[in-house]
Protein backbone atom coordinates (compact mmCIF):
# COMPACT_ATOMS: atom_id res chain seq x y z
CA UNK A 1 0.00 0.00 0.00
CA UNK A 2 1.26 3.46 -0.89
CA UNK A 3 2.55 5.64 1.98
CA UNK A 4 0.00 8.42 1.34
CA UNK A 5 -2.84 5.93 1.47
CA UNK A 6 -1.58 4.67 4.83
CA UNK A 7 -1.56 8.28 6.12
CA UNK A 8 -5.07 8.81 4.82
CA UNK A 9 -6.38 5.66 6.49
CA UNK A 10 -4.74 6.62 9.77
CA UNK A 11 -6.20 10.13 9.49
CA UNK A 12 -9.61 8.67 8.78
CA UNK A 13 -9.40 6.53 11.91
CA UNK A 14 -8.29 9.54 13.98
CA UNK A 15 -11.13 11.61 12.55
CA UNK A 16 -13.76 8.97 13.26
CA UNK A 17 -12.37 8.41 16.76
CA UNK A 18 -12.31 12.17 17.43
CA UNK A 19 -15.86 12.62 16.19
CA UNK A 20 -16.97 9.62 18.22
CA UNK A 21 -15.40 11.25 21.26
CA UNK A 22 -17.60 14.30 20.68
CA UNK A 23 -20.67 12.11 20.15
CA UNK A 24 -19.94 10.33 23.42
CA UNK A 25 -19.50 13.69 25.14
CA UNK A 26 -22.89 14.81 23.85
CA UNK A 27 -24.53 11.59 25.03
CA UNK A 28 -22.71 11.64 28.36
CA UNK A 29 -23.79 15.21 29.01
CA UNK A 30 -27.28 14.64 27.71
CA UNK A 31 -30.13 16.76 28.91
CA UNK A 32 -30.81 16.65 32.59
CA UNK A 33 -34.38 16.25 33.73
CA UNK A 34 -36.67 19.23 33.31
CA UNK A 35 -39.05 19.44 36.25
CA UNK A 36 -41.42 21.96 34.68
CA UNK A 37 -44.62 20.67 33.15
CA UNK A 38 -44.11 20.14 29.45
CA UNK A 39 -46.37 21.58 26.79
CA UNK A 40 -45.98 18.16 25.14
CA UNK A 41 -44.93 19.37 21.72
CA UNK A 42 -41.33 18.16 21.94
CA UNK A 43 -41.72 15.43 19.31
CA UNK A 44 -43.17 17.71 16.69
CA UNK A 45 -40.72 20.45 17.70
CA UNK A 46 -37.79 18.14 16.91
CA UNK A 47 -39.24 17.46 13.47
CA UNK A 48 -39.90 21.18 13.01
CA UNK A 49 -36.36 22.08 14.11
CA UNK A 50 -34.80 19.95 11.37
CA UNK A 51 -37.30 20.85 8.67
CA UNK A 52 -39.42 24.01 8.54
CA UNK A 53 -37.31 25.90 11.07
CA UNK A 54 -34.42 25.51 8.61
CA UNK A 55 -36.51 26.98 5.82
CA UNK A 56 -34.56 29.98 4.53
CA UNK A 57 -37.79 31.97 4.38
CA UNK A 58 -38.04 31.68 8.17
CA UNK A 59 -34.49 32.58 9.07
CA UNK A 60 -33.09 36.08 8.94
CA UNK A 61 -29.64 34.53 8.72
CA UNK A 62 -30.78 33.21 5.32
CA UNK A 63 -33.23 35.66 3.79
CA UNK A 64 -31.34 38.77 4.81
CA UNK A 65 -28.07 37.32 3.45
CA UNK A 66 -29.11 35.46 0.31
CA UNK A 67 -25.72 35.45 -1.50
CA UNK A 68 -23.86 34.27 1.61
CA UNK A 69 -26.57 31.71 2.38
CA UNK A 70 -26.46 30.24 -1.13
CA UNK A 71 -22.66 30.24 -1.14
CA UNK A 72 -22.66 28.50 2.22
CA UNK A 73 -25.12 25.86 1.09
CA UNK A 74 -23.20 25.13 -2.13
CA UNK A 75 -19.93 25.04 -0.23
CA UNK A 76 -21.32 22.53 2.23
CA UNK A 77 -22.73 20.41 -0.59
CA UNK A 78 -19.34 20.52 -2.27
CA UNK A 79 -17.73 19.39 0.97
CA UNK A 80 -20.14 16.47 1.37
CA UNK A 81 -19.58 15.54 -2.25
CA UNK A 82 -15.81 15.64 -1.77
CA UNK A 83 -16.15 13.49 1.35
CA UNK A 84 -18.14 10.90 -0.59
CA UNK A 85 -15.55 10.99 -3.36
CA UNK A 86 -12.79 10.31 -0.86
CA UNK A 87 -14.42 6.97 -0.11
CA UNK A 88 -14.93 6.39 -3.83
CA UNK A 89 -11.21 6.92 -4.44
CA UNK A 90 -10.05 5.02 -1.36
CA UNK A 91 -12.09 1.99 -2.31
CA UNK A 92 -11.36 2.32 -6.05
CA UNK A 93 -14.96 2.63 -7.17
CA UNK A 94 -15.22 3.65 -10.82
CA UNK A 95 -16.97 6.86 -11.77
CA UNK A 96 -18.73 7.31 -15.06
CA UNK A 97 -17.29 10.08 -17.21
CA UNK A 98 -20.58 11.98 -17.35
CA UNK A 99 -20.80 12.00 -13.56
CA UNK A 100 -17.19 13.14 -13.40
CA UNK A 101 -18.01 16.11 -15.57
CA UNK A 102 -21.00 17.05 -13.43
CA UNK A 103 -18.98 16.66 -10.23
CA UNK A 104 -16.16 18.75 -11.63
CA UNK A 105 -18.46 21.61 -12.51
CA UNK A 106 -20.18 21.44 -9.14
CA UNK A 107 -16.87 21.39 -7.30
CA UNK A 108 -15.67 24.40 -9.25
CA UNK A 109 -18.75 26.31 -8.14
CA UNK A 110 -18.31 25.11 -4.56
CA UNK A 111 -14.63 26.10 -4.53
CA UNK A 112 -15.59 29.55 -5.76
CA UNK A 113 -18.16 29.81 -2.98
CA UNK A 114 -15.64 28.68 -0.37
CA UNK A 115 -13.11 31.19 -1.64
CA UNK A 116 -15.72 33.94 -1.62
CA UNK A 117 -16.59 33.08 2.00
CA UNK A 118 -12.91 33.24 2.91
CA UNK A 119 -12.48 36.58 1.15
CA UNK A 120 -15.54 37.91 2.94
CA UNK A 121 -14.12 36.77 6.25
CA UNK A 122 -10.84 38.53 5.52
CA UNK A 123 -12.32 41.81 4.36
CA UNK A 124 -15.52 42.16 6.43
CA UNK A 125 -14.93 44.24 9.53
CA UNK A 126 -17.87 42.58 11.21
CA UNK A 127 -16.55 39.08 10.54
CA UNK A 128 -13.02 39.95 11.58
CA UNK A 129 -14.44 40.86 14.98
CA UNK A 130 -15.47 37.24 15.55
CA UNK A 131 -12.90 35.41 13.47
CA UNK A 132 -10.13 33.33 15.03
CA UNK A 133 -7.24 31.51 13.31
CA UNK A 134 -9.26 28.32 13.48
CA UNK A 135 -11.85 29.86 11.12
CA UNK A 136 -9.22 30.58 8.45
CA UNK A 137 -7.57 27.18 8.82
CA UNK A 138 -10.93 25.39 8.60
CA UNK A 139 -11.94 27.30 5.50
CA UNK A 140 -8.58 26.83 3.81
CA UNK A 141 -8.41 23.11 4.60
CA UNK A 142 -11.92 22.44 3.28
CA UNK A 143 -11.39 24.51 0.14
CA UNK A 144 -7.99 22.92 -0.47
CA UNK A 145 -9.58 19.50 -0.08
CA UNK A 146 -12.20 20.38 -2.68
CA UNK A 147 -9.58 21.76 -5.07
CA UNK A 148 -7.51 18.60 -4.70
CA UNK A 149 -10.61 16.47 -5.23
CA UNK A 150 -11.36 18.33 -8.42
CA UNK A 151 -7.79 17.87 -9.62
CA UNK A 152 -7.69 14.21 -8.56
CA UNK A 153 -10.71 13.37 -10.69
CA UNK A 154 -8.62 14.20 -13.72
CA UNK A 155 -5.02 13.71 -12.53
CA UNK A 156 -4.32 11.20 -9.78
CA UNK A 157 -1.82 13.16 -7.74
CA UNK A 158 -0.82 11.98 -4.24
CA UNK A 159 -1.18 15.52 -2.90
CA UNK A 160 -4.92 14.82 -2.83
CA UNK A 161 -4.44 12.33 -0.01
CA UNK A 162 -2.28 14.77 1.92
CA UNK A 163 -5.01 17.40 1.71
CA UNK A 164 -7.63 14.83 2.74
CA UNK A 165 -5.48 13.66 5.65
CA UNK A 166 -4.87 17.18 6.91
CA UNK A 167 -8.59 17.89 6.87
CA UNK A 168 -9.52 14.60 8.53
CA UNK A 169 -6.99 15.17 11.28
CA UNK A 170 -8.24 18.69 11.90
CA UNK A 171 -11.98 18.00 12.01
CA UNK A 172 -12.26 16.87 15.66
CA UNK A 173 -10.08 19.68 17.00
CA UNK A 174 -11.23 22.83 15.23
CA UNK A 175 -14.56 24.43 14.44
CA UNK A 176 -15.27 21.76 11.84
CA UNK A 177 -16.48 19.69 14.74
CA UNK A 178 -19.74 21.54 14.22
CA UNK A 179 -20.43 18.73 11.74
CA UNK A 180 -21.20 16.69 14.87
CA UNK A 181 -22.54 19.39 17.17
CA UNK A 182 -24.90 20.92 14.63
CA UNK A 183 -27.38 18.08 15.05
CA UNK A 184 -27.19 18.19 18.83
CA UNK A 185 -27.64 21.99 18.81
CA UNK A 186 -30.81 21.77 16.75
CA UNK A 187 -32.04 18.94 18.96
CA UNK A 188 -31.52 20.94 22.14
CA UNK A 189 -33.14 24.02 20.65
CA UNK A 190 -36.19 21.94 19.76
CA UNK A 191 -36.27 20.47 23.27
CA UNK A 192 -36.38 23.97 24.71
CA UNK A 193 -39.01 25.40 22.39
CA UNK A 194 -41.00 22.17 22.18
CA UNK A 195 -41.16 21.75 25.94
CA UNK A 196 -42.60 25.25 26.24
CA UNK A 197 -45.00 25.01 23.32
CA UNK A 198 -43.33 27.61 21.13
CA UNK A 199 -42.40 25.09 18.45
CA UNK A 200 -43.92 24.05 16.18
CA UNK A 201 -45.72 27.34 15.57
CA UNK A 202 -49.48 27.25 15.22
CA UNK A 203 -50.88 29.18 12.29
CA UNK A 204 -53.40 31.83 13.17
Amino acid sequence: MKWYLVITYISLVVCIAGCLYHVIQIIRHRKTRDFSKSADTVGSAITYSFTKAMNPARKESAYLHVPTYIAGMLYHLGTFLSAVLLFVFLFSIDLYRTIELFISVFLMVSILCGTAILVKRIFSKLLREITVIDDYISNILVTAFQVCTLVYIHFSLPVYYIAASALLLYIPFGKLRHAVYFFAARYYLSLFYGHRGTWPPIKH
Binding site: H29, E60, G72, S124, R177, A184
Partner: peptide, 22 residues
Protein backbone atom coordinates in the same frame (compact mmCIF):
# COMPACT_ATOMS: atom_id res chain seq x y z
CA UNK B 1 -23.07 23.95 33.63
CA UNK B 2 -21.28 21.39 31.51
CA UNK B 3 -24.59 19.86 30.36
CA UNK B 4 -25.58 18.85 26.86
CA UNK B 5 -27.35 22.10 26.04
CA UNK B 6 -24.32 24.11 27.08
CA UNK B 7 -21.80 21.75 25.51
CA UNK B 8 -23.50 21.76 22.12
CA UNK B 9 -24.00 25.52 22.05
CA UNK B 10 -20.42 26.27 23.04
CA UNK B 11 -19.11 23.97 20.30
CA UNK B 12 -21.49 24.85 17.48
CA UNK B 13 -20.92 28.47 16.55
CA UNK B 14 -19.14 28.76 13.18
CA UNK B 15 -18.60 32.52 13.48
CA UNK B 16 -20.60 33.27 10.35
CA UNK B 17 -21.91 36.48 11.88
CA UNK B 18 -25.31 36.08 10.23
CA UNK B 19 -26.98 36.48 13.63
CA UNK B 20 -26.00 40.16 13.67
CA UNK B 21 -29.18 41.34 11.98
CA UNK B 22 -31.36 39.49 14.49
Amino acid sequence: FDDGRFLTSINSCVHCGLCADS
